[in-house]
């Protein structure tokens, strides 16, 4: 019920923007609140690019952590590492943003797409690690032993017995991470530079869907402006819901239960 109400309200509110700009809205990179001219392209670009950068960084690290935790370590130290990575998820987004502004951005040459991507990657780590770990642990133990009994090394065991069965779940974990990255707002807003332009450089400022809503919603001057922001929210919603849907199916298929 609540969900339907939510969709309905967003649709109504965004209809004005949609009527005014039609489908051209998705492909236009104009953004001028003073003259009520709007286009969504730079935001879609910024959102997707920052999320992809985040994935590119978080995937190898998260996968390493999950392999370490699920396959390699037997020490007591292991649970501490798992807790520490989980704690990354508990730190509020705005705190990452603050740290990003004063520590990370200066180190990476100022606010930019890259800075936004890096901060996002830190926030994705716990998601990717936790879910990949679960998926890897769901691979039956006797498969590992079969590989070991053939004389496989740890790497070969992982390759032969674990990676195949866990693969679709790991992909699911990554896509779930992507879903989180797309919708993440505060930390990105604080370090990405907030300029509605498409630049090929990673070091140039950019803007995301969530950021522009965060920055301009409270100060939207005209009905059209507000409506356009709601429409951006709707785009964001549709993308994340689809991405999450795909991810969930993949993760369920491997772990065999609903998480």
């Amino acid at each position: 019920m609540l969900l339907l109400l939510l969709l309905l309200l967003l649709l109504i509110k965004s209809s004005l923007g949609f009527k005014t700009f039609g489908f051209g809205f998705f492909f236009s990179s104009a953004w001028d609140p003073l003259h009520d001219v709007f286009g969504a392209l730079p935001f879609i670009y910024g959102t997707i690019m920052s999320s992809l950068i985040a994935l590119l960084i978080a995937l190898p690290l998260g996968l390493s952590c999950s392999i370490y935790l699920a396959e390699i370590s037997h020490s007591k130290f292991k649970e501490h590492i798992a807790t520490m990575i989980d704690l990354l998820a508990a730190i509020p987004s705005v705190v990452y943003g603050l740290w990003g502004i004063f520590v990370l951005a200066p180190a990476l040459g100022g606010p930019s797409l890259l800075t936004g991507g890096v901060i996002l990657s830190i926030m994705l780590l716990p998601t990717i690690t936790a879910i990949s770990r679960e998926v890897i642990q769901a691979v039956p133990h006797n498969l590992r032993e079969s590989a070991l009994a053939l004389g496989a090394t740890k790497w070969e065991t992982f390759k032969l017995a674990v990676f195949g069965p866990a693969l679709s779940g790991i992909v699911g974990a990554v896509i779930l991470g992507l879903g989180r990255a797309l919708g993440e707002t505060m930390a990105v807003t604080m370090v990405i530079g907030n300029r509605p332009a498409i630049s090929p450089s990673l070091f140039a400022p950019a803007y995301t869907l969530a950021s522009v809503i965060a920055n301009e919603f409270a100060e939207a001057t005209s009905e059209v402006n507000l409506s356009v922001l709601v429409e951006l929210g709707l785009i964001l919603l549709v993308i994340t819901v689809i991405v999450n849907g795909i991810a969930r199916i993949l993760v369920w298929k491997t772990t065999g239960h609903k998480k």
Binding site: L10, L182, G183, A210, I213, V243
Partner: peptide, 14 residues
């Protein structure tokens, strides 16, 4: 499930 995957800022708009 769908509700939990909606970004919090969109809930804010709602």
């Amino acid at each position: 499930d769908v509700l939990s995957s909606i970004p919090s800022i969109v809930i804010g708009i709602f």
